[in-house]
Amino acid sequence: MFDNINLLLFNYNRIINYHKSLIISKIDIAYGGNTMDIRKLQYFISVAETLSFTKAAKEHYISQTAMSQQIASIESELDVLLFDRSKYKVDITSAGEVFLGEAKEIVAKYEQAVKKTQDVHKGCKGNIHIGYAGPTEVELLREIIEEFEKKYPYVELHIEQNNFKKLSKDLKEGIYDIIFAIAGEINDIGSLEKITLKNEQAVLVVSKKHPKANKKNMNATEIADENFIMLSEECGQLNFERMIESCRQDGYEPKITERVNSLDTLMFMVELNRGVSFLPRSQINNLNNKVSFIDIINTHHSFAVEMSWIRFNKNEYIKKFIEIAKQLYY
């Protein structure tokens, strides 16, 4: 029975893709047959990600020969070799790597345009694309979203977590309408608007194995000799620099023994008692039973969250979202 169902699904997808191909082919003919359409870019991305013409062809329900012809057509149009082919493997070239990044952005924008068009057709009056960096922003973002959805239930919200670099790039390119991140990390964007919504005290996070794990609070100078685990500069240059400067303002030079690229790794290192770190106080409820938090007295460490957007964004619901955020936190 399951084989029959799978066969039906396979044939259904082939029919759908066949009709899509007919539509796109007509567009190709209208433009002289030389248009590098979205379909070709999707084919290229699949080959680049799988490094296999066979796997990519199966993903799109076409033959391997047809897939090879499509990639050859792109290479001919660009006059650039995108893949090194041998009998045993396929490798993407340096030029192919560059083209892959650009192709992904084009396809993402196309899919976003399709989604917005379909939303209007379905009766959805608008949407907002929101990006955020990490758990520091989650509690704040949750309250704003809950309040917004009460007032504007017909507006669709798309929410995604990403690193600071990607958030900044996608805000600039219009993929995100609004982003939430640690203060100072989003800069160098023309017409950027931002406000600080929250500034909260930092706590020291230590392993349950740490000799001071049972302490309720400590003076800032008492932690000067600790080994520190911090998120690396790649996770946020300004945040990293701010942490070091806050330690100096507290009267000591931090001994950083680990620089990690994710909060999960940071917490794992703390659990293993490889060092201590700082977290916003709002994250206390999210800590597991393998770590403890200690309040820091007379410290300069804090975490501020900013909301950023582009001034000339024409999305009418951004202003309404910002108004609610200001009512709750500003």
Rank of each mutant, 00 (worst) to 15 (best):
K212Q: 11
E234S: 07
I223F: 02
C235G: 14
R248T: 08
F240I: 05
K255R: 14
G236M: 05
E226K: 00
V260R: 07
S262T: 14
L231P: 04
M243H: 08
V205K: 00
V203D: 01
F240Y: 11
K198G: 02
I195Y: 04
A202K: 12
N214C: 04
V206W: 01
N217F: 06
Q201F: 07
D250M: 13
V260F: 09
R248D: 08
N214Q: 13
E241N: 15
S232H: 06
T196A: 04
K216F: 10
H210D: 15
E200F: 05
N261F: 14
E253R: 13
D225R: 00
E253V: 15
I256D: 04
K212F: 05
K198V: 02
D225M: 06
L231D: 02
E245T: 14
S262A: 03
V206C: 04
L266S: 03
E222W: 05
E253L: 08
K212Y: 05
I189R: 03
R259C: 13
L238W: 11
G190V: 03
L266F: 08
E253K: 14
K212N: 11
T265G: 01
E233I: 01
Q237D: 01
K216E: 11
E253M: 10
S246Y: 09
M243Y: 15
C235N: 11
K212I: 00
S232F: 10
Q249M: 14
G236D: 01
K194A: 12
D250A: 08
S191E: 05
Q249W: 06
S232A: 13
N199E: 09
N219F: 14
M230L: 10
V203R: 02
I229C: 03
L197I: 04
E200S: 10
T257E: 11
S232G: 14
S246A: 14
A220F: 11
I195N: 02
K209Q: 09
E258W: 14
S262G: 05
L231S: 01
Q201G: 06
S232I: 09
L192E: 09
S262V: 03
I256C: 00
T265R: 10
F228C: 06
K216W: 00
P254E: 13
I256M: 03
F228R: 04
V205T: 10
L197S: 01
T265D: 04
Q249E: 06
L231K: 01
K212C: 02
K216A: 11
C247S: 14
N214S: 13
S246T: 11
T265Y: 07
C235L: 07
A202M: 12
K208D: 05
L266G: 02
K212P: 00
N261A: 07
E200Y: 11
K208L: 00
S191R: 11
I223S: 05
L192H: 07
L204Q: 02
A202R: 15
D225N: 10
F228V: 13
R242K: 13
N227T: 07
I229R: 02
P211H: 12
M230N: 13
E241G: 07
A224Q: 11
S207G: 03
M243N: 15
A202E: 13
E234R: 07
L238N: 15
A202F: 07
T257R: 06
E234D: 07
K198D: 02
K215Y: 04
K209G: 05
E200V: 08
A224K: 13
I223E: 05
N199S: 10
N219L: 12
D264P: 00
V260N: 03
K208W: 00
